[in-house]
């Protein structure tokens, strides 16, 4: 190291720290709030999965109907909510909110809880058809008043399950 001049050392240290800074910036974004298990946003309507899926035992795929049909599970249309709420809970403030959205032809802007980085390709349909339970990845949704991200969804999480079940572990299975 003695051959490096003091100015050279300074530059090296600066570059290292700058690179670390850049990496941390990258990290905050890719492993930012939405990717933390504590991610528990306040939704426009205080919808309770505990009440619907837990107490009333409505099957997940009654609302998330696309899960078995496509890559995405999909969030139900407001119209679908109204199938029941036309008649139920009209006196409750949260259901009233729902009514307002529907009457004003305005979509509900739900805050996203579960998301994967863009470099990961995930397909709901395949997992559902294989018989993987929703809870395996999404956690005990039927007990949650407010949905939160119950798993970290890091690569190890996916891989361990793929290995247990003999699913492919080639890179391009997910990074396609």
């Amino acid at each position: 190291m003695s051959s490096i001049s003091p100015i050279g050392k300074g530059a090296l240290a600066f570059l290292t720290i700058a690179a670390l800074g850049a990496l941390s910036g990258f990290g905050v974004n890719y492993f930012g709030p939405i990717y933390l298990t504590t991610h528990k946003p306040v939704q426009p309507i205080a919808y309770s999965h505990k009440l619907h899926a837990g107490d009333n035992k409505i099957p997940c795929q009654y609302c998330h109907t696309f899960a078995r049909r496509s890559e995405m599970a999909g969030v139900p249309s407001t119209q679908k909510c109204m199938n029941c709420h036309e008649f139920l809970g009209a006196n409750k403030p949260e259901a009233q909110k729902l009514n307002d959205y529907y009457d004003n032809d305005k979509p509900i802007e739900w805050k996203r809880v579960f998301d994967l980085p863009d470099h990961v390709w995930f397909n709901h349909k395949r997992h559902i058809r294989k018989g993987v339970k929703c809870q395996k990845c999404h956690g005990p949704i039927e007990t949650m008043e407010v949905v939160y991200r119950s798993n970290d969804f890091k690569m190890g999480f996916c891989l361990s399950c793929h290995q247990e079940n003999g699913a492919p572990t080639d890179c391009w299975t997910c990074h396609t």
């Binding site: 969030v75 959205y101 032809d105 802007e109 739900w110």
Partner: peptide, 21 residues
């Protein structure tokens, strides 16, 4: 450096907006 990178990365998708009908 880090704030520059943060700014450049932009935002991740934050909302899920379903159909009304």
């Amino acid at each position: 450096a880090s704030s520059g990178v943060l700014g450049a990365c932009g935002q991740v998708t934050k909302k899920v907006i379903p159909f009304v009908t």
